[in-house]
Computed example of a mutant assay.
Amino acid sequence: MNSQDPLAQLRDIHLPATGGWWPPAPGWWLLAVIILITCAALAWFWRRHHTRNAWKRQARTELAILEQHACNEPAWYSRLNSLLKRVARQTHPDQHPESMTGAQWVSFLLETLPKDRIASRPTAEALAAAVWQPKPTLAPREALALARVWLEAQL
């Protein structure tokens, strides 16, 4: 080859160096922001749902504790009625069930009971009266059965 030939002095075609992985393209930044916002929103909604339903978990736990310590004492029936009234206050706040007693409380329980309202009337009446009787006539298992059915309908 001739050293005077200018074309002989040219180098071969070479590709430019590839770009690195950083910084990412604007589309990846946008996707990252969308994913972060979505994750934050999901975490916020889950936490909100979890805290709003904490009373439901607490009611189920308290019912389980009452089942374990079932006895035929007015104090036990009072705790069971108290649990039912707290749940009723959460589910029916406009009716003010926490202030109901006697026949009014019994009729509220029966109105909000999903099934067997007529058959459950004696049990509901005995549950409301058991708080004031020195020796309640209602068996704890019957009261628990009514409370369980009523609570599951409300929760």
Rank of each mutant, 00 (worst) to 15 (best):
W46V: 12
Q90T: 02
Q95D: 15
H69V: 03
H69G: 09
E98Y: 00
F45Q: 15
H92M: 13
I65N: 11
Q90C: 09
R60N: 11
R79Q: 14
T61M: 14
E62C: 02
C71S: 13
E73K: 13
P74D: 06
W46D: 11
Q58Y: 03
D94N: 09
N81K: 02
P97E: 02
E73N: 12
K85Q: 14
A70R: 11
K85A: 09
H50N: 08
N81R: 09
L80H: 07
A64R: 12
H49P: 00
L83D: 06
H92T: 13
R60P: 04
R52L: 13
N53D: 05
T61K: 14
L66H: 04
D94Q: 11
L63E: 05
Q90S: 10
K56R: 15
D94G: 11
T61S: 15
A59T: 08
A88Q: 07
H49M: 05
E67N: 13
A54T: 04
L80T: 07
R60Q: 15
H69M: 05
P93E: 04
M100W: 05
R89F: 08
R89A: 14
H92W: 13
H49A: 12
N72W: 06
E67A: 14
W76L: 07
R57G: 15
Q68I: 02
R86P: 00
A54L: 11
